[in-house]
Nucleic acid binder design. Sequence first.
DNA 1: CCCATTTTGTCAACCGGTTGCCAACCATTG
DNA 2: CAATGGTTGGCAACCGGTTGACAAAATGGG
Lengths: 350, 350
Amino acid sequence: MTDTTQPGDTSADTARTPRTGKSAPTIYDIAELAGVNPSTVSRALSKPGRVSAKTAQKIMDAAETLNYQVNVFARALPTGRTQTIGLIVSDITNPAYFDVIRGAESAAAARDYTLMLAESKESAELELTTARRMLATVDGLILASPRLSDEEIGSLSEKKPVVVINRNVAGVPSLIADTEFGVTEAVRHLADMGHTEISYVAGPERSWMSQRRWETIKARCDWHGLSASVVASSEPTVDGGRHTAAAVRAGTATAVFCYNDLMAIGLMRELQAAGVEIPSELSILGFDNIFGSDFTTPPLSTIKSPLTELGAAALEHVLAAVDQLATTPPLPALPTQLVLRGSTGRVNAS
Amino acid sequence: MTDTTQPGDTSADTARTPRTGKSAPTIYDIAELAGVNPSTVSRALSKPGRVSAKTAQKIMDAAETLNYQVNVFARALPTGRTQTIGLIVSDITNPAYFDVIRGAESAAAARDYTLMLAESKESAELELTTARRMLATVDGLILASPRLSDEEIGSLSEKKPVVVINRNVAGVPSLIADTEFGVTEAVRHLADMGHTEISYVAGPERSWMSQRRWETIKARCDWHGLSASVVASSEPTVDGGRHTAAAVRAGTATAVFCYNDLMAIGLMRELQAAGVEIPSELSILGFDNIFGSDFTTPPLSTIKSPLTELGAAALEHVLAAVDQLATTPPLPALPTQLVLRGSTGRVNAS
DNA sequence: CCCATTTTGTCAACCGGTTGCCAACCATTG
DNA sequence: CAATGGTTGGCAACCGGTTGACAAAATGGG
């Protein structure tokens, strides 16, 4: 029922057609039908203006009637171009990447490119392998929050255009959400609410962005005269956030920034399970404003990143590099923004 | 402060070589180094046993020193094989697909295949275009909860192996989580809790699974002597769930199944915002047990699907078909399971 | 030691496009 | 009417693998 091939069929030898009986039409079929040379067909299809309007029309019609579709492999062989851009994220299940993916995907679709998605599962080695493998088949690569070293990223970018999101790598185009803006608002808000001791639950050691967020928080706290400390974590997930609960309770901070919303949610739930009242006993802030960050009780206050724009801008940038345009599109300003919900509040008198 | 790339960097112009100076090594280079014919290299690399052990070794060594990597396009051109499997989901941002993707991805990686991911954004047309485009470059295709018609799916599966997840299509291998199991438990639970009127907030019209879930619910309700009704919806998302709140309140049911967790969450939050107490006034159940379904207050009761297993099994199936194995792996039993949390409870006396 | 048989390697023809180079062609213009 | 210059189309050589057919080499038996 599932299988329709007859193993002992006599036709097995004769009908040794590797593909389906009728193979896909080629430019040679079109050429024959239109009465021109295959190379003319090739030009008509890929070099606008190189053939006369009426020959082009004849060819288009022929292609239409034959229902022609280019063979991407045949095209890629001499040119090396595949009309595909790769995107590597560190964790597909992290909702923060949703919008990055969506943004890049729509930008790609608009330019008739295909996006190829892969994840590194937070592993530098896997990320490198994946990136290398992808580089062989894509025209350009976008790395979102990579865990690789600067040198590794640099060496990747020597082969094909590479753009990095949420990290600054010298010599490689980098797109970064402006942490400053949202953090400034957030720290001011906390100061207004009477908080004097703040802490930051850090992300992965190798995360450039985690470092950056901490530096910005520290700088703003200093400015307001608040004390700021760091709490280390295992992994940037809900569980990772849970595991930091003990360390956070051990500290004296009354407000906590978490590297991302996932960790903030995990931390909040673990603390609540232990009887801690949020926000009256402790204020919690995340980063990113992911899907689900408003599902919690109280809903999470967070610093929102312009993720869709980042994804789209990254794609535009890679394409510009692929097309060797001298004029790379300007890097848009991508400010973060404070989203105040229920997990932050006035510091408790007690 | 937003932008850290140096626009006028000197390295930008100089390194503008289209490909790299030294192009990638080919089997011809290996052949030369090993002192054999290119075709021997080709066979050594892809046809184990066709060349003598010691020639093979020489070739392997040469390949190693040259750091050789096959050119997938050159290989794909004559063979049509790409070592890639496509997976199309209806919505990347639906956490229900996380585990499907993960499952398929690991299964693919284990067999040295690459997974190519795409989404149809709940659109049948887009799904068809995407599927057609993908079919040209992958060895097989997995469709997760497709919106296409049976005929369209059938015609796709004529060209390359196709496996469908969460839908039953005649003539095409289909993998379905066994709704029966979880629904049976859930309805019994509701009956025990004193509910007598149940309703089902349906998913997309074209969703086979939505239909199936409703039929199962209806059957179990009949069996227990409960009344069951359907509420239509716009889209299977959080917002879609919100929009059904009015219709749900207008009805007399005391317990509501939603097509998926996303809708259940949306419905619950909208009702809560309107002052309805969950679960004392209304019990709500979702399907899938997605990421975040336990973030809500109360946490969502839901019927969990074995999504990782579905993804992995689907991939194994496609590969078996690709390799033309007579023995397709057996379809594993994939039962759903009731996950009781806080959104269901005893029916209110009032 | 020679011939039959199996193993191993080589040749050459593909797969389906792209592209540099050149010749034929066209419409102008002197 | 011929010379001119710009288009347009054709030829053929790639891109880097795979594979059927065949020859050479190795093996074994008599």
